[in-house]
Nucleic acid binder design. Sequence first.
DNA 1: CATGAATGAGTATTCATTCAT
DNA 2: AATGAATGAATACTCATTCAT
Lengths: 197, 197, 197, 197
Amino acid sequence: MSAPKPIEGRLAEIAMAARELIAERGFEGLRTRDIAARVGINVATLHYHVPTKEALIRIVAQSLRSDFIAQSQARPRQGLSPVEVLKLEFADFRETMTEAPERYIVMAELSDRAERDAAIAAEIRPMQAYWRRMTADIIVEGRDKGVFRADVDPEAAAMMVIGTLSMSFWHARDDLEFFDRACAELLRALMVRPSKD
Amino acid sequence: MSAPKPIEGRLAEIAMAARELIAERGFEGLRTRDIAARVGINVATLHYHVPTKEALIRIVAQSLRSDFIAQSQARPRQGLSPVEVLKLEFADFRETMTEAPERYIVMAELSDRAERDAAIAAEIRPMQAYWRRMTADIIVEGRDKGVFRADVDPEAAAMMVIGTLSMSFWHARDDLEFFDRACAELLRALMVRPSKD
Amino acid sequence: MSAPKPIEGRLAEIAMAARELIAERGFEGLRTRDIAARVGINVATLHYHVPTKEALIRIVAQSLRSDFIAQSQARPRQGLSPVEVLKLEFADFRETMTEAPERYIVMAELSDRAERDAAIAAEIRPMQAYWRRMTADIIVEGRDKGVFRADVDPEAAAMMVIGTLSMSFWHARDDLEFFDRACAELLRALMVRPSKD
Amino acid sequence: MSAPKPIEGRLAEIAMAARELIAERGFEGLRTRDIAARVGINVATLHYHVPTKEALIRIVAQSLRSDFIAQSQARPRQGLSPVEVLKLEFADFRETMTEAPERYIVMAELSDRAERDAAIAAEIRPMQAYWRRMTADIIVEGRDKGVFRADVDPEAAAMMVIGTLSMSFWHARDDLEFFDRACAELLRALMVRPSKD
DNA sequence: CATGAATGAGTATTCATTCAT
DNA sequence: AATGAATGAATACTCATTCAT
C-alpha cells in the first residue's frame, strides 16, 4: 500500500478544517461556509480550491488515508516480536484516540458514506483493507513463531482486533483503563495459554 | 432492561419508513417529504403526527431499541450452555444482518449522532449497554462453568464480541462464510484450549 | 392548430409577471426573486408552483403560445375578402404592438432561446409555423380570387409579411405612421397592379 | 456611414471568441472565463485588455458593425443595375448566413439588448440604419429607372426587404431553396409587372 | 502582459415547518 | 386526520472583478 499523494498547502488547511468540523458536527452539520471561516478564507475562495462539496469530502478522505498510512509506516517493526508490534499498534491507537480523536470519528462517518459513494469508498476501503492486512500479517508471524494460538484464523482474528479497537473508541474513549483491559483481553485471546497446567 | 413503550400505528409506519430511508441514504439524505411520501401521506400530515424532525429521529431510535430488546428477549436461554447461548446470539446477528440489515445501518448512524444529540443518546446508549451487559453475563457464566478461559475479563471480552460482530457487519455482510469464521475465532478466543494437552 | 392547455390561476400570474420582467430586462436579467416579488409571493412559493427556472420559461412559452392562438382564432374571417382579412391581421399586430408590446419582445427572446432549448422550441416553433401557415392561406385565397398577384409564392410571401411586421415592431414601434406605410407597401407588393393599364 | 475604427490584435481575438460564444450559448450563457479560455489567456488578463463585461460587449458590437460595413462596402455597384445590386445583396446575405451565421445570431442578440443598453444601441442602430438606407437607395434608383414599381415607398420597401431576409435567416437557414424563393418573391414584389398586358 | 488566488454580491434551489381549510 | 399552499432561513455554487507578484 503506497501512500497516496499527500494533500498540501491551502488544500491541506481546508481538509483539516473540514475534518474538525465533521468531528464536531457530523456530515450533516458540515457547511462550506463554516469550513471557509475556519480556514480564514471566503467561501468563494474555498470553491476556487475545491470545486464542489463532493470533491471536498473526497479530499478529506484522501487526507485521512494519507495520515493513516503515514502513521502506520512510521511505526518501527525491526527486531520486535509480534506481541510487541501489536502492542505498538494498540499504543498508537490509544494515542490517536486521545490526541486526535477526530481521525476516527471522521473515519467512521466516511465509512458510512462509503456505502453510498463510490469515490469515498475508493479512498476508504483500501485504508481499511490495509489495516486488516497489516494486522493479519502480525498475527501470522506470531502464530508461526509459536506465541499466538496455532489454530488462529489470521484474517478473522484481524477483524476481531480491529473491531475491538473501533468499538473501544466509542465506548472507552474517556475510560482509558477500560481500553487497556480490552487490549489485554485481545492479547490473551490470541496468545497460547502459558499456564493451563 | 425493560423494553420501552413500543411504537404503534401511524407512528410505527413513519418510523419504519424513516428507517428504510436512513438505511438507503443516510442521515444527511433524510427528508421529511420523502418519509411522508413513503408512508403515503402529506408532509403536513406527517408533522401532525410528529411535530419535528428531531422528534422523528427520537422515534426512530425508540423503534430500533424496542426491536432490539424484543429480539434479544425472544432468544431462549433456558437449559442452554453459555456456548450455545453465544452461538444463538451470533445466529441472530447473522440473520438480522442478512434479513434486516437496515437495523444495524440505522443503529450505526444513530450511534454517530448520539455523540452530539442527548435525546438520541438517551435511547441508544441503554441499548448498547444492554447488549454489552447481556453478553458479559453469558461470558461470566461460561467462565464460571469452566468452558471459557478463567482469566477472561467479561466486560472487555463482551466489547470484543460486540466489536467483532459490528465490524463484520460492514466487512462481511456479503461474505457469510467469513462472518462464520469470525464467530468461530471469537469462540476459540474465549474457550479454554481443548487441545493443548 | 389546437390551442394548448391554457395556464391558469397562480401559474398564470407567475407567467405574466415573468413576461413583464423578460420584456423589461431580457432573459439575462430575469431573476426568480423578482418574479415572486411581482406576483406578491415568496420565492419558495414560486418554486412550489414551478420547480425550476427552466420549467418557468417553458410556462412562459406556453402562455405566450396560448395567447397568440387565442388572439388569432378570435379574429373574424367570415364574409371578408382576403385583403380585409390581411388588414385585420395588420390591425391586430398594430394593436398588440402598442398595447401589449411585451408579447413580441418575449417572443423574440424565446425565439433566440429556442435555438438552444428544445423544450422552448416545442412551444415556439408551432406558434411560428401556425402564423406562417395562416398567412399563407390568406394569400392563396387572395391569389385564387385574383386580387393578389398570380405569380405570388404564398409561403415565401407569408414570410415576407411576417418578416416585415416583425422588423417593423423593432423599428417602427414609436412611429405608427411608418408602420402603416410598411403595411401599405406589403399590400401593394401582393396585389395585382390596379393601375398599370 | 464611415466604418468605425476596426478592432485589432488581442482585442480582435477577444471579440471573435465572444462572438462565437454568444452565438453558441446566447448572451445569458456568456462567461468572461469562457472567453478568456477560448482566447487562451487568463481571466485576469482578459480584464487587463477589457476592463468590464459591458465594455466587452461594446467591443463585440463594434467588431460586428465593422465587419458589416466592410462587407457592404466591398460589394461592387459600379455599372450594375439596381436589380443586380439587390441580387448581390441577397447573395451576400445568403453566403454569410451559411458561412458565418454567428454574425446574424449575435446581431439579433445585440438588437434585443440595444433596447435596454444605450451603449449597445449606439453601435447597433447606426448599422441597422445604414442597411436600411443603403437598401432604400437601391430601391429609389430602381424606381427612378423604371424597373421597380412607381408607387413603391422606398423606406417601407427597404424594411420589407430587410425583414424578409432576417426572418429567412431563422426559418430558412437550412433550406436554401426556400431562401431563394423568398428573394425571388421580394423581387417580384418590387418590380413592375412585366406581363399584365 | 500575464497569472493564481481571492472576494462581494448575488442566484437558484432546498427544506422543515406552519396554517387555513 | 388530512392537505395544498405558503414561507424563512439556509445552502451550495457562480461570476465579474481585483490585486499582489
